[in-house]
Design a protein around this nucleic acid. Structure first.
Length: 270
DNA sequence: AAGAGACCCTGGATGC
DNA sequence: TGCATCCAGGGTCTCT
């Protein structure tokens, strides 16, 4: 499941392979991958363009084209990006291919078909709801405290809401809550200023570390060169149900919050 | 308005 | 062994 660190890692590896390379043709292998505009227009607008810069907001990848439009892509659950020779046979799950002028293909593969591509004049059309980047100055204790005020939903659910803070998914929400020693079912508005401070620090620390370890590979996530991330070796609670808490030895608990599996230490997190 | 739940998808794991 | 069912979860939509 690509979250902020995985998306950034993929984008960084992709950048030197696609930058300034003319896209001479586009193959849409599954039409549902195109969100907007309609497929024929999408292909026409992408053809003969090149990516002049890349950026990331939350879990969205942003590719600026030489005509000023933006290609926005979201990998959702199982999306993968590779740049490989165009002679390689397509994989069963390849959904979208940009054929580059240098004889290589920039391919988007996505087993579960949740990933989407958007081609827009202004990225705000797609990402206007996103909250601040967790590593930016905008994501302050004051900001989070204000966002959580009077909220009754579990803090775990609120961390997954991209309008509060962008880029956190199920893995890093659980890991951050453990590091902050906060129970996932705590109502958002019940957190004290000190607790919000711990949470901001924990989120930033876990995202920083996951970035430096190139993300977390549990099953599907791969870097564009096919290699895995490393942060799965640093997980303290996620998918460690029944294993001893690294801090106190209590078996890690698993509950379901907002339909998402949630892992925590019932003794350490309050 | 906020919160809960359905839905979209596939394939690996599990159960009988 | 083979088939059916469950589960994974990001984002959007609907309903209350």
């Amino acid at each position: 499941m690509p979250e902020l660190p995985e998306v950034q890692t993929i984008l960084d590896a992709l950048f030197p392979q696609i930058i300034d390379q003319p896209i001479i043709d586009v193959s849409v292998l599954w039409e549902g991958v195109i969100d907007r505009p309609e497929t024929t227009l999408f292909i026409a607008w992408m053809k003969n363009r090149r990516v002049v810069s890349t950026d990331r907001r939350g879990k969205y990848m942003l590719f600026e084209l030489d005509d000023g439009r933006w290609l926005v892509m979201h990998l959702r659950m199982t999306g993968e990006m590779r740049v490989i020779p165009n002679s390689d046979p397509y994989h069963k799950h390849d959904r979208l291919v940009f054929h580059l002028a240098n004889g290589r293909d920039w391919r988007f593969k996505d087993m579960r078909k949740f990933g989407r591509a958007y081609l827009v004049e202004d990225v705000q059309e797609v990402i206007f709801k996103l909250g601040p980047e967790p590593l930016s100055a905008d994501f302050s204790v004051a900001h989070l405290q204000k966002s959580l005020a009077a909220r009754t939903a579990p803090i775990k659910s609120l961390l997954l809401d991209q309008r509060l803070v962008a880029g956190i998914g199920n893995i890093y929400a659980d890991e951050a809550l453990f590091r902050a020693r906060l129970h996932p079912l705590r109502q958002g508005g019940s957190l004290s200023a000190a607790e919000v401070g711990r949470l901001v620090e924990a989120i930033q620390a876990v995202i920083q570390q996951a970035l430096s370890e190139m993300g977390t590979t549990l099953r599907d996530y791969r870097r564009p060169d096919g290699s895995t991330g490393e942060f799965q070796n640093s997980l303290l609670v996620f998918r460690r149900t029944g294993e001893p808490c690294p801090s106190c030895g209590t078996p890690i608990s698993r509950i379901v919050v907002s339909g998402r599996s949630t892992h925590f230490c019932s003794k350490e997190q309050h």
